[in-house]
Design a protein around this nucleic acid. Structure first.
Lengths: 349, 349
DNA sequence: GCTGGTTATGGTATCGATTTCATAAAAGAA
DNA sequence: TTCTTTTATGAAATCGATACCATAACCAGC
């Protein structure tokens, strides 16, 4: 096993040319069945296996896609949402016989350099960018290099020229807000994420739009749109409970934030959902196992991952294809963290 | 960008031989500074970038490690434990300038075939197996092929000949059991996982040993050592609460199981930790965010990942190295899910 | 001035597969 | 039977980089 069997060894033993063996491997119709059988027998005998690197060099294609994540410090990695995405991506890759090449780094610069290396070094055929952010260098670089790529999330600029897969976050956010409004809530707060990311902006927009549609005023004190790492859940809880006009419902773009803030709220005597209803985005296992289980917007992470990888592979196979984008539907999963606000129960807490 | 610049183009334009350019790339001391400057200037002008595949072919090394996970249906992927592992692996790879090649599949056969393909096809230099299981074909195959690999978890057989990284699960389980015993618990139950996996067996063994050390009898009714997917949390809760001699504490090898069973227990009126104390393994974000937060054994997933990848890379660099294995220490993180059982409170619930 | 030893660089085979072009053999047409 | 067409296979160039071997240039020592 140490010394490997090459196509030439097979050719020699089978008394054919290397090119014939190559054609047998690709099952070319130009080779007679008899020769195919003979060559295959020898391949078995010698324990031949195709050397992938030789093929890559000549075919100029690695059958591998590069996956670019946010910086590790965003804790994207530790989030089950990421895992589910990866699961979807992985499934799609395996279905189409592609491989995944994972990129990570602790700084944006490190990630960018990784991307440059994998693109210039021809390590991958295409790139899947798992975020969409302002001031990002990766997407512009890929665009400029005319390297095939797909963005998971709505591109910050030129969405028409870019292939992407995303939820309709504005719409989804509108819907979950409306859902709470229909449950009788009027004072609805919103705890978002880093507004550098397109997804955060879209969801905030959807929330605002829904409130406006129902002519409900928004108290800016109800909005906490800050990066997760800067958010002290206790502080958020305290601030919200200290308000004269306390919100009766809260929307979180991040399940983890929802849980930590929920805990702080409960400790301060605001029980969920009795005093405050909660809804969050991303329906991962976290929401299911929370106590009480969270009402969430299912963003269908596995499908998002699957479609994005699948679209990228389509693009690789037919580079001239029209840059179609894809919107994955969302739906609200009702659980116990939000409840109907009966008129009589609208007492101050 | 479409047509790529090769080492030959650089050589021609700089009036040197391709071999000289290659030596400049590797910064060989045999090339004069003057020539290096000249060649580098031309590389810049032409926008040259090393083609990774050409190098791979001649150097017979891909600087990539393959990562083998359990079948997707085990939901290993969706577990933050996996994410943290991956994070550690990723960090180690980036430190050493290695890449990761991820394998997944829905069946064991699919995974096995993937491994064969990546090993025989020379897609990776070494393999990291993220589980240790009975009746596994991957490890024997790697061994037989004398392909470098490291197992995360204690190998089922021939651990002496195999490089592995693991916690001391027997010991860790002993400790957490002892911890509960020292809190005054005597009737301690154990909810484990699929005993095909070495980790499940080790932890069960540790638990039994600790109980024996303290001369505490084990009621076999307290043991639920079944695969996660077959475990109905409600049923487990019901069975445990229906016992005449109910356990006052439970150890879970899986945080998710712990949460689902906990919920069932609470619903049936057994509050945590008042009536039943809980301890679990793997201290991920799940335990931190649970309500109440779980007392857990921190298995240090990130470090496990980091060390395993790092060991594999060491092995690749020095194939003759002694097959040292590594035990990552664990520690108990005390949180609110377990409490001291005061003698007077030992009343039947 | 000649020999021997460095040092800097060039030429070329090589890694393992694919692919184009050429050609021998077989089949079909006249 | 001879010529043309088709089919099956072979020979060799190629992908991009590396590494071995060769050699020119230079310097030192006698």
């Amino acid at each position: 096993m140490n010394v490997s069997v090459t196509i030439k060894d097979v050719a020699k033993k089978a008394n054919v040319a290397p090119s014939t063996v190559s054609r047998v491997i690709s099952d070319s119709p130009r080779i007679s069945e008899k020769t195919k059988r003979k060559v295959r027998k020898v391949m078995d005998e010698l324990g031949y296996h195709l050397n992938y690197n030789g093929r890559v060099l000549v075919s100029q294609s690695t059958q591998t896609i590069g996956i670019v994540t946010k910086v590790s410090s965003d804790h994207f990695f530790e989030n089950p949402f990421f895992s589910e995405l990866l699961r979807g991506i992985s499934d799609a890759c395996h279905e189409r016989d592609y491989s995944m090449y994972l990129t990570t780094g602790n700084t944006e610069e490190a990630i960018f350099q990784e991307v440059v290396k994998m693109v210039q070094g021809k390590r991958v055929d295409g790139v899947l960018v798992l975020y969409s952010r302002e001031d990002d260098r990766v997407v512009p670089f890929l665009r400029e290099s005319s390297f095939p790529f797909v963005v998971l999330g709505k591109p910050v600029d030129r969405p028409g020229e870019t292939m992407y897969v995303d939820n309709d976050n504005v719409q989804a956010s509108k819907e979950v807000t409306r859902y709470l409004i229909e449950l009788g809530h009027e004072r609805i707060g919103y705890v978002g994420g880093n507004s550098q990311f397109e997804v955060a902006r879209d969801r905030l927009e959807g929330y605002r739009a829904a409130m406006k549609d129902h002519s409900l005023p928004i108290d800016e004190e109800w909005l906490k749109n800050v990066p997760a790492e800067k958010q002290d859940p206790d502080q958020v809880a305290e601030q919200l409970l200290g308000l004269e006009k306390k919100p009766t419902a809260l929307i979180f773009t991040d399940e983890y934030n929802a849980l930590t803030v929920m805990r702080s709220l409960s400790r301060r005597g605001a029980s969920i959902p009795e005093q405050i209803s909660i809804a969050a985005f991303n329906n991962t296992v976290v929401s299911r196992l929370a106590d009480p289980p969270l009402t969430t917007v299912d963003t269908q992470a596995i499908q998002l991952g699957h479609e994005s990888a699948s679209s990228l592979i389509d693009l690789l196979k037919r580079p001239d294809m029209v840059k179609k984008s894809m919107i994955i539907p969302t739906r609200i999963i009702e659980r116990d963290s939000s409840r109907r606000l009966e008129p009589e129960s609208r007492v101050e807490i």
